[in-house]
Design a protein around this nucleic acid. Structure first.
Length: 586
DNA sequence: CGGGGAGGCGCC
DNA sequence: AAAAGGCGCCTCCCCG
């Protein structure tokens, strides 16, 4: 590995890492002016040391095809980086953004848009090591050449520079990229998981753990028996919706489906035990002992997060359903001895984001320093907090009927600016147009099939049915774009929050080896680290002595995130924040 | 026998 | 199609 040539006059601003021809990697040092200064061959075994040294010396922004490919291996070697530019994620944003004026060259490089597939750990719970960087199984993307990566990066910088909103797009790309770093770090650190507590919750609900996975736990079996007795049908099948539906109807229960909401509207002695049965069966199959055995190892649950996995910019997850963990199991999320969990979620994030992007002063005031829904009640337009929440969700999701739809017009009177913004977003979507988040992530274009349905309805021979279908699909799309601007901007706020927390957590000195968390990844066991993220909530795992300082960082980072996105805004972003040993059920 | 859709339900 | 957006994942069941 040749020495790195850098100087104070021309420091390295970016270091691009791409796969070379011989299976190793090539590092390309680029100055702030965009001048390529040096190319260095780096073998896979040298990579960790190379990155660690350059990070320490110059802290460049690392540019690579995919964080999900490269970073887990570095983390496994204990190497962290402060900043990166994820070419794949940024390409995805730029190639679709309405802020980008000349998307031509980016669109052409279609291989930068891979599907959202991420490298799965080859065995559940096991995370790739540095060695895996070379393994083809982990490299699911076409191996782009160094030159291709360099020119893609240049095109992306040009696309931002020539866009209508370079400032916002730069922020978005940085936020998306830091999100990718956080995602990999969350998997590396893992969620501290109390297996005994999880087992206790399962045993209490379902009865003792059966000897095999297919055996029904006692309380589940008992609920099933109670249902069959009440139905007077000893052979009723409960796990198959079609069969269950027939059994219910045979017993005189007039339902069209077997879903909970519909069962709740009828009275019959079979229904209470049936709802119990469904709850228990769900717990067992989704998060039962099999889940525990598959996903929790050495006191850590390590899901795979997929940044940008949702069109709106939210993260998706893969493996164990990390974003759908039932509240019931939250107590199993527990700090290591001598450590604490700092848990925070944002109160009414999406409504506050809507108030900020629409500049709705009244809405900002309703939430200022208090629960936003209570603020709406105090303003006198809606009687109860529950109704205020229902109305707000209806406004953001596009409810037209039912309790929610009935309440929405009241919000239109008190928050005209906010409602105008979402109504306009819906109207654009219904007409087949594109909407964008605050920082410039744009909704996908209307599908050709969607356009065909619309034009078919306006042809001379169109039937009533054609028109109905067109109207319905237009409204479906309107509800999507209505929600897109709010959900997508909320995701951007959350990325800014995450990135700021992450940045500020690096200021803590490591605790002693004796105080180390016993199973966090090599880079995390002695310092406060993010352990969980769920759209608008985070959990930091921190040594007890740092817990209060971390809490303050989490709070301040929420204010900073608001300023990063919206500058001076009357909207505040309030947190519910708790420091404890374990997450509570509430 | 595996893939994929539907029903259903967990999270925000 | 539960009045309303975004997901993942389980089981069942049909199909090739």
């Amino acid at each position: 590995m040749p020495p790195i040539r850098t100087s104070a006059a021309l420091p390295t601003r970016w270091c691009l890492l791409a796969r070379g021809v011989a299976g190793g990697l090539v590092a390309v040092l680029i100055s702030a002016e965009g001048t390529e200064m040096q190319r260095i061959q780096v073998s896979a075994t040298e990579l960790g040391v190379f990155v660690a040294e350059l990070e320490l010396a110059e802290s460049p922004r690392w540019v690579w095809a995919s964080t999900a490919d490269l970073y887990p291996g570095l983390l496994a070697a204990g190497v962290k980086v402060a900043r990166c530019h994820d070419l794949r994620l940024c390409h995805q944003i730029l190639s679709n953004s309405a802020f980008v004026t000349e998307p031509g060259p980016l669109m052409a490089a279609s291989h930068w848009v891979s599907d959202a597939s991420v490298p799965e750990p080859s065995t559940p719970g096991r995370f790739p090591t540095l060695f895996d960087i070379e393994a083809p199984a982990v490299t699911q993307h076409a191996p782009e050449s160094v030159d291709e990566a360099v020119s893609e990066f240049a095109r992306q910088r040009e696309a931002v520079k020539s866009s209508t909103e370079p400032g916002r797009l730069s922020l978005l790309l940085a936020a998306e990229s830091v999100g990718a770093l956080v995602a990999a770090e969350l998997s590396s650190a893992g969620i501290p998981w109390d297996t005994a507590e999880h087992d206790r919750i399962l045993s209490e609900a379902l009865g003792p753990r059966p000897a095999t996975y297919d055996a029904k736990p006692a309380k589940l079996a008992a609920a099933g028996t109670a249902v069959r007795e009440a139905l007077r049908d000893p052979n009723a099948a409960l796990d198959s919706p079609p069969k269950l539906l027939r059994a219910l109807r045979a017993a005189g229960i007039d339902v069209a489906s077997t879903s909970q909401w519909e069962l709740a509207e009828h009275t019959h002695p079979a229904l209470a035990p049936l709802l119990t049965y469904k709850k228990l069966a769900r717990l067992l199959s989704a998060n039962g002992w099999a889940w525990l055995d598959e996903w929790v190892h050495d006191g850590r649950y390590r899901p795979v997060y997929v940044p940008g996995g949702v069109v709106t910019g939210r993260w998706a997850s893969s493996g164990g359903g990390a974003l759908q963990l039932p509240r019931q199991l939250r107590p199993a999320l527990r700090a290591d001895p001598g450590w604490k969990l700092i848990m925070a979620d944002v109160s009414q994030l999406e409504p506050r984001v809507l108030a900020a992007i629409s500049g709705d002063e009244a809405m900002a005031r309703a939430g200022r320093g208090r629960d936003l829904y209570s603020g709406i009640v105090e303003s006198g337009s809606i009687e109860s907090r529950a109704d205020a929440k229902l109305a707000m969700l209806g406004a953001m999701y596009g409810a037209t009927s039912g309790d929610s739809g009935r309440l929405v017009p009241r919000l239109r009177r008190v928050f005209p600016a906010a409602m105008r913004l979402v109504d306009e977003a819906a109207s654009i979507g219904e007409r087949g147009g594109t909407v964008s988040t605050w920082l410039g992530r744009s909704s996908p274009p209307a599908e050709p099939e969607w356009r065909e349905v619309q034009s078919a309805a306006s042809l001379p021979g169109a039937t009533r049915r054609d028109e109905d279908v067109a109207r319905r699909t237009a409204r479906d799309r309107g509800r999507f774009t209505r929600n897109f601007v709010v959900q997508g901007t909320a995701a951007e706020w959350a990325l800014a929050w995450l990135g700021e927390i992450r940045r500020r957590l690096t200021s803590f000195p490591p605790v002693s080896e004796a105080q180390a968390a016993y199973a966090s990844g090599p880079g995390f066991s002695r310092v406060p680290h993010l352990a969980f993220f769920l759209h608008d909530e985070i959990i930091v795992h921190a040594p007890e002595e740092h817990a209060e300082a971390v809490a303050e960082i989490v709070r301040e980072s929420a204010d900073t995130a608001g300023r990063i996105l919206f500058g001076h805004t009357p909207v505040d972003f309030r947190l519910d924040l708790r420091v404890a040993d374990r997450a509570a059920t509430e």
